[in-house]
Design a protein around this nucleic acid. Structure first.
Lengths: 206, 206
DNA sequence: TTGCAGTTCTGCAAAGTTGCACTTGCGTAA
DNA sequence: TTACGCAAGTGCAACTTTGCAGAACTGCAA
């Protein structure tokens, strides 16, 4: 479907990225996280190591299939417009879950990734490292979401940052819980659990 | 005082560490964060680069004078015993601030560090990266603190993790605020502001 | 004083990561 | 169709970080 409309250049680019992701997962499964080197992955994917880093910021990003998500002003507006009346906590959690991204890769690769995350918890940290990298734009998004709620009408940047940290932590805990049960990473479930966690802790604190 | 009781080996070790910290700060101030290489710092401190990494986990740790803090069970018990009747939020914040550590270095170096953090916000991230490294032990500590509060009597590990994240974020925001005003990093002030931030956001959420 | 055990320091090699300069080939406007 | 601009891919060099093995040094006991 998409491949019809794309030029050769774009098709090649997508193919290279997917090949790298597949090779990364394959080698890590076969040799372990340590022993699967960037050189080996690049070799298997038939590109130079330098090219590897043109596609991914780190080895672990390739393994997880993480890509830099664009958090543009339009994207934020769209996100808010899509769910206009939900609670800000839910909206923020939803934003984060969206960002963590359901990698579009093949089903089998995705299943394998679940195993890898369970085996190497450090990989989970990677996802949140990525969040940190985009912290500024994310904080802006959170600010925009909060601005729609009367309670947070006067919210400033620090408040947004704090809310982001709270919701981010809730999502992380929720991911860990779900990963522990080896269940499918259903985004909807993830969201519900994360929101629930925030509610619980807030209730206890007040 | 201390130098009397310590043997030559320990005195040398302390001296080497301080020399490395001083050289790191000096070079970064002179050449910038990027250009101050580990090689250059080690050269100036008259040790090998390998030795540098015997003392610090990263270049930035040396710049900030971060050291691995031991969070033993006794330390946790001591912390709780020292402030038995305070609110759990305050207690957790206090724990974190303590952990971030008042570097014992000379006054001048400390002032310079403030400048550096203001100039390179990435350095603040370093402190929390260190927190992440000790997340497990810290979470245990938070669990112990929460267990003393009736509201959190049934708190589990996820709750502790969430509370840690909330308080950690609050401290981070507080540090940033204080760094922006270039005021002295008074730990007491830091704590108060962080606790205040948590209260504010919880109130808005309920 | 000597010798042993444990620490500190070092050199070396390998891996991850990044910047820079260069080549090649796709896309497209004239 | 040609020619030009731009993106993808590459090679290289530098830097950060870690593991390993060995040399030098310290503390302590015989």
């Amino acid at each position: 479907m998409t491949s019809e409309t794309l030029g050769l250049r774009d098709r090649k680019r997508i193919e290279t990225r997917q090949r790298l992701e597949r090779c990364a997962v394959t080698l890590v499964m076969r040799d372990g996280l340590e022993n699967a080197t960037v050189d080996a992955i690049s070799d298997l994917a038939d590109v130079s190591p330098r090219t590897f880093f043109n596609y991914f910021d780190s080895k672990e990003d390739a393994i997880l299939g993480l890509r830099d998500v664009e958090i543009t002003d339009e994207a934020i507006a769209g996100h808010i417009a899509a769910h206009p009346d939900v609670d800000p906590v839910e909206s923020i959690v939803r934003l984060i879950v969206t960002m963590l991204g359901t990698s579009i890769a093949e089903r089998e690769v995705r299943a394998t990734r679940l195993e890898l995350v369970a085996r190497h918890p450090q990989l989970m940290g990677r996802q949140f490292a990525q969040m940190t990298r985009m912290a500024e734009r994310l904080t802006n998004a959170v600010g925009a979401i909060l601005a729609r709620d009367a309670r947070f009408a006067d919210a400033d940047a620090p408040t947004a940052e704090l809310m982001l940290a709270i919701c981010g932590a809730a999502v992380r805990v929720a991911v860990m819980e779900l990963a522990a049960t080896h269940s499918d990473p259903d985004p909807e479930l993830l969201q519900q659990r994360a929101v629930e966690l925030v509610r619980e802790v807030v209730q206890k604190l007040q």
